[in-house]
C-alpha cells in the first residue's frame, strides 16, 4: 500500500536532516508502527506521508501513485488523527464532526454512531472547550474515521488517555484492522506497539535501524526459556528451563509433579528491552 524509498527531509530554513534516507513498506491491511523516543522523526514521517510536508527527498508511493502527484481526492480515503487534538473549541462535539464531514464529497459516517463508539454520546452537545484532554483526543480520533478511511494515520493515539479509554481506542483500532483498514501508527508506548502492530520500525534520530514483525522481534531478542516459580518446603524458589525439548526435561517435570507451582512465564524480551538493546537508546524521553 505504501512504499517509501530513501526518504530524506529537512525543515525549511534548517540544515539538519530530520529523516535520513529511510526506506520501508506498509502492506495493505496491516498495522505498521513507528516506535521511538520523542523527536526521533516519527511525526515528521507521518506528515510527509499524509502530504502535509512537501519538499522531501526520495520517493513515496501510495497505492502505486507517486505522492507528489496525488490529487485532492486522495484524501477521500485517508484519515489522520494528530498527536494534539485540533478541534474547534467553540463548537460542540457534534458540530465539529458535522463541519468536518462537510469537507468530504464521499458519504460520511453517522456522527452519533462515532460518538457512541468512544462514549462521548452524552457530551455531543457540549462545547469542546469544556472537554478534558482525553475527551478531545477521543473526538479527534473519531473525526479521522468520518470518511471511512482505507488508510489511517494515527499519531500517539493513546497519549493522555486513562487506561479505560486507552482500551476503548485500542479495541477500535484492532477492529478497524479486522475490517481491512491499513494503519500507520506512531508511538513511544511500547505496550501499545506490541499489542497493536503487525510490524514495527524502530526510529532513532531519523533512521530506522530495525524493521520487523512484532513476533519476530520478540523471538529473536528474547531468551528461549521458561521461568518457573514454585514452593518447596515453605520456601519460594525459581528456575529457568530451555523451551527446546521442555516436555522431556526431567527436572522440569519433577517440579511440575511434586511442587506447588506459583507462576510459569516464557522469557520473551519486552519491546523496550529490545529497543534499548538494538538502538542503545531509552524509549521514554
Amino acid at each position: 500500500m505504501i512504499q517509501v524509498q530513501n526518504l530524506t527531509y529537512s525543515y525549511p530554513g534548517t540544515e539538519k536532516q530530520v529523516l535520513k534516507d529511510i526506506s520501508f513498506e506498509i502492506k495493505e491491511g496491516e498495522i505498521f508502527g513507528f516506535l521511538g523516543p520523542s523527536g526521533a522523526g516519527k511525526s515528521t514521517t507521518q506528515k510527509v506521508l499524509n502530504g502535509l510536508l512537501k519538499g522531501f527527498g526520495g520517493s513515496v508511493h501510495i497505492n502505486g501513485t507517486d505522492l507528489s502527484k496525488m490529487k485532492r481526492s486522495f484524501y477521500e480515503k485517508i484519515g489522520v488523527a494528530f498527536e494534539f487534538p485540533n478541534l474547534y473549541l467553540k463548537l460542540t462535539a457534534l458540530e465539529n464532526l458535522q463541519l468536518f464531514a462537510s469537507f468530504f464529497k464521499s458519504k460520511t459516517r453517522d456522527p452519533d454512531e462515532l460518538l457512541k463508539m468512544v462514549q462521548l454520546e452524552g457530551d455531543r452537545d457540549t462545547r469542546v472547550e469544556a472537554f478534558s484532554k482525553g475527551m478531545k483526543m477521543r473526538l479527534s480520533f473519531i473525526r479521522s474515521l468520518l470518511n471511512q478511511p482505507e488508510l489511517l494515520f494515527l499519531d500517539e493515539p493513546t497519549a493522555g488517555l486513562d487506561p479505560g479509554n486507552a482500551r476503548i481506542m485500542k479495541d477500535i483500532i484492532l477492529d478497524l484492522k479486522q475490517q481491512g483498514v491499513t494503519i500507520f501508527l506512531t508511538t513511544h508506548h511500547m505496550d501499545d506497539a506490541g499489542e497493536l502492530c503487525n510490524r514495527l520500525a524502530f526510529m532513532v534520530e531519523g533512521t530506522l535501524p530495525v524493521i520487523d514483525s512484532t513476533q519476530e522481534l520478540r523471538l529473536k531478542h528474547g531468551k528461549k526459556t521458561v521461568r518457573l516459580e514454585y514452593m518447596e518446603n515453605g520456601m519460594t524458589l525459581s528456575d529457568e528451563f530451555p523451551i527446546d525439548q521442555l516436555a522431556f526435561n526431567p527436572t522440569f517435570n519433577e517440579i511440575l509433579e511434586n511442587q506447588e507451582i506459583l507462576t510459569i512465564h516464557t522469557q520473551e524480551a519486552s519491546l523496550e528491552d529490545i529497543f534499548i538493546k538494538v538502538t542503545g537508546q531509552q524509549l521514554k524521553q
Binding site: 502530504g51 502535509l52 481526492s73 485540533n86 478541534l87 469537507f103 468530504f104 473525526r143 470518511n147
Partner: peptide, 20 residues
C-alpha cells in the same frame, strides 16, 4: 484562531484542503 488550534492543518488533510 484556526491556525492556533491546528484546524488549518486538520483541514489540509481533507479533500477540501487548504485551498478550499
Amino acid at each position: 484562531d484556526e491556525r492556533d488550534g491546528g484546524i488549518i492543518t486538520a483541514i489540509s488533510v481533507t479533500p477540501t484542503g487548504k485551498f478550499g
